[in-house]
């Protein structure tokens, strides 16, 4: 499928009005883990909006990445409860296993490691999201095991 076809599929599903924009952008991210410049230009063309407008909206939202990300985007919560309950040791464990630093993506494009603000699991801190799935009450051992499972998957 060409980029234009892929986007028109989403436009058909959500509609051509401006309020369809967020669902369209969210679908793009879910599919390929980021929104490219070409995506933005094409969405603008199909919704009859300016590309600058689409760029403005996209870059406002931290989950609408405009940089290529891995197949699995890991977001570690850095807000106070998680930070009090050992977020740093979870982060360094993940950095060691994946051999990347915070903000980076593995060479095989499989994992990206990012920080995020409170994800609503403070009572089960520390917590991470891997794509849309939350993992909570983490320990270095537990997160190691979780990542090993993901590494096994293609």
């Amino acid at each position: 499928m060409t980029l234009s076809e892929s986007i028109s599929q989403k436009v058909n599903k959500h509609g051509k009005t401006r309020d369809a924009l967020m669902p369209i952008l969210q679908d793009i991210v879910r599919e390929k883990h980021y929104i490219s410049d070409q995506d933005m230009v094409e969405v603008a063309r199909q919704l009859d909006l300016s590309a600058a407008d689409i760029f403005g909206t996209t870059t406002f939202y931290s989950f609408l990445d405009t940089k290529p990300r891995g197949k699995y985007v890991i977001r570690i919560c850095k807000t106070i409860s998680c930070s009090m309950k050992g977020k740093n040791s979870i982060l360094s464990t993940m950095e060691e296993i994946l051999k990347i630093k915070l903000g980076e993506t593995t060479a095989d494009k499989k994992f990206s490691l990012l920080e995020t603000n409170c994800i609503g699991w403070c009572h089960k801190a520390p917590a991470i999201l891997i794509n849309d799935t939350p993992y909570t009450e983490l320990t270095p051992e537990k997160v190691t095991e979780i990542l090993r499972e993901y590494i096994k998957q293609r």
């Binding site: 009005t17 939202y61 931290s62």
Partner: peptide, 26 residues
């Protein structure tokens, strides 16, 4: 059902409307 995309400010009611309308959550 509409979804946010990681912006705390979109909990503020008028920012939330802007977001549903497909705009920056200002």
């Amino acid at each position: 059902l509409r979804l946010g995309s990681g912006a705390y400010i979109c909990g503020e009611e008028s920012a939330l409307f802007e977001s549903i309308e497909g705009k920056r959550g200002e």
